[in-house]
Simulated assay, not measured.
Amino acid sequence: MKFVHISDTHLGYHQYGLQERAQDFYDVFDEAVDFAIDKKVDFVIHTGDFFHSSRPSNQVILQGINILQKLKNAGIPIFVISGNHDRGSQVRDVSPLKILEPSGLRLIDNGVTEYDGIFFAGLKYISKAGLKQIGGSIKPIFEKYLENMGNGFKILMLHQEFQPFFPSSNLYLKNEIPEGFDYVGIGHYHIPQMPAVVNGATVVQPGSTEFTAYNEKEEEAGKGFYYVEVDGKEIKPQFIKLSRKRPFLYYKFSEENIEELAKQIKEDIEKLEGGKKPVVVFKGFLKELTYKDIYKYLSTEGISEEEGSILHLHFNLTREVTEDEGLTVIETSTEKINQELKRLIGDNELFESVVETLNFLRTFDNIDEIKKYLKENPDAIDI
């Protein structure tokens, strides 16, 4: 038996408001499907965030149908669960993945299904508030799943936050995964992990197929999916890196070396071998310069979106402020903001729900994207 495990494709994400980035998310998803077809796998599993939005556009739905049609034509079924991005909004709406069921997608958000002697159990994303409503543990759900599974290979599909990948989570894999499953596929965490054995099950987290928010750890780990071969009791997951992803060039920014940095970026761009134009990311601090100044320095080396050398320049910069007593402080502090927010809200459960919602909105790159999303999804803030 062999299958492909893919996760967090975020189809339809117009990162930076660019159509090119939306196409990037489709391209890597399509590459993974081409691999599955070439290997003639028995099936594909997808562990959540198939779409980036619970209300994908008509164009994005068509992209999803195209992906599924390729698998259907090859006779390869795909089993999917809903992630936090595409789960719908509880009782007010259903997951948009339901729309794709006639195209061959098999949605197993809360239950068990059997295919060719293999058992699939799925659980869609549950928020922290939702976890508290069920007692804080998802293990009883999985134990009931096992009661409905016969003799055969057992796969559990999750899109959930676990320690230590999400430090604020109270869920631990060893406590939540009961013995009895053979393979546990987990989505939501965007950095791929080495497979591990937990309570007898092979646990695999493939990460996302593209950068929804760039960071160095994701770059080091790479973007891809898992190709899994099962020979008797031996489970052999192999991480497959994607080749169609857009290059990201990451730099630590310092005003003191801006001229040297511009020259280095130019050299790095020239080393890229064709393909897609890169996204350049700056992280660091601003003191005297403005963004306009930075653009000016870069343009002297021919680095700009207008000249076509890069797709986008993304700033992740914080301005430093010097107080009268000479101490340097940062303008914003997430920790201080959260403390004040918690004090104002009062109720700890409501505070956690608000923070969870804000963290979701932080995946967007500017306020215009957030406004557009909230306008199209009036019930998105489900707290």
Score class of each variant (00 low, 15 high):
residue 139 K to W: 10
residue 116 D to L: 05
residue 153 F to S: 07
residue 148 N to W: 06
residue 143 E to G: 05
residue 100 L to C: 04
residue 95 S to D: 03
residue 115 Y to C: 01
residue 118 I to A: 01
residue 130 G to E: 05
residue 135 G to R: 10
residue 124 K to T: 10
residue 142 F to T: 12
residue 137 S to V: 05
residue 105 L to Q: 03
residue 115 Y to M: 00
residue 109 D to A: 01
residue 123 L to Y: 06
residue 102 P to E: 15
residue 130 G to R: 04
residue 119 F to N: 07
residue 122 G to P: 00
residue 79 F to L: 11
residue 138 I to C: 06
residue 149 M to R: 09
residue 106 R to C: 06
residue 130 G to H: 03
residue 145 Y to D: 08
residue 87 R to P: 03
residue 90 Q to V: 14
residue 95 S to F: 08
residue 100 L to T: 06
residue 153 F to G: 05
residue 106 R to Y: 01
residue 125 Y to T: 12
residue 118 I to N: 03
residue 131 L to E: 11
residue 128 K to E: 14
residue 113 T to S: 03
residue 150 G to K: 04
residue 98 K to N: 08
residue 135 G to I: 14
residue 93 D to W: 11
residue 83 G to N: 07
residue 84 N to D: 13
residue 79 F to E: 04
residue 108 I to N: 08
residue 138 I to N: 02
residue 136 G to T: 08
residue 120 F to V: 00
residue 105 L to D: 03
residue 112 V to I: 07
residue 132 K to V: 09
residue 117 G to H: 00
residue 80 V to I: 15
residue 120 F to G: 00
residue 117 G to C: 07
residue 122 G to M: 04
residue 110 N to F: 10
residue 87 R to S: 11
residue 83 G to I: 06
residue 98 K to A: 13
residue 122 G to A: 03
residue 126 I to E: 03
residue 136 G to D: 10
residue 121 A to Q: 06
residue 148 N to V: 03
residue 110 N to M: 03
residue 103 S to W: 08
residue 117 G to V: 10
residue 85 H to P: 05
residue 114 E to S: 01
residue 90 Q to R: 15
residue 105 L to I: 13
residue 145 Y to H: 05
residue 137 S to E: 08
residue 144 K to G: 07
residue 137 S to F: 14
residue 150 G to S: 07
residue 151 N to E: 15
residue 131 L to R: 06
residue 127 S to I: 05
residue 82 S to H: 09
residue 145 Y to L: 04
